[in-house]
């Protein structure tokens, strides 16, 4: 029964957040598809958000959670603009492979 009421150390949440961020960086490096690279960026943002929430819980600070709220808003705006750019790039080049999109000029 004691096991059921055990608390989780905050450092485990922070380790999970660091692992998510690192996996995002790995995805950014190894993925070759423009959309999946973009998804890895979202993964990194989520990892950072988790550590914001964990620290807000630690110091009972509401402002940490508000920071996450703003990050979500900026991520939504970023996703809209980024995916529109991806659509425009696909129209111009008919490919999504990042190795073939290496020139600014056509």
């Amino acid at each position: 029964m004691n096991f059921l009421h055990q608390a989780v150390p905050l450092s485990w949440y922070l380790l999970l957040s660091a692992a998510l961020f690192s996996l995002g960086v790995v995805g950014f490096l190894i993925k070759r598809n423009l959309i999946t690279v973009f998804m890895s960026i979202e993964l990194m943002l989520n990892g950072v958000n988790l550590s914001f929430v964990a620290f807000a819980h630690q110091w009972h600070a509401v402002k940490g959670q508000i920071f996450v709220f703003f990050v979500m808003m900026v991520a939504a705006a970023e996703a809209a603009v980024g995916l529109a750019i991806i659509i425009a790039v696909f129209r111009a080049r008919a490919t999504l492979a990042v190795d073939r999109i290496d020139l600014m000029k056509l």
Partner: peptide, 29 residues
């Protein structure tokens, strides 16, 4: 609502719109 709802719907919509296929592994990666 925002992430797994709105943003991911946008992502899947774009994946389907562009008909993105499998990615290839190249020297750069």
């Amino acid at each position: 609502i925002v992430y797994s709802g709105a943003i991911m719907v946008l992502f899947t919509f774009v994946v389907m719109l562009l008909n993105a296929g499998r990615e290839e592994r190249t020297l750069g990666s």
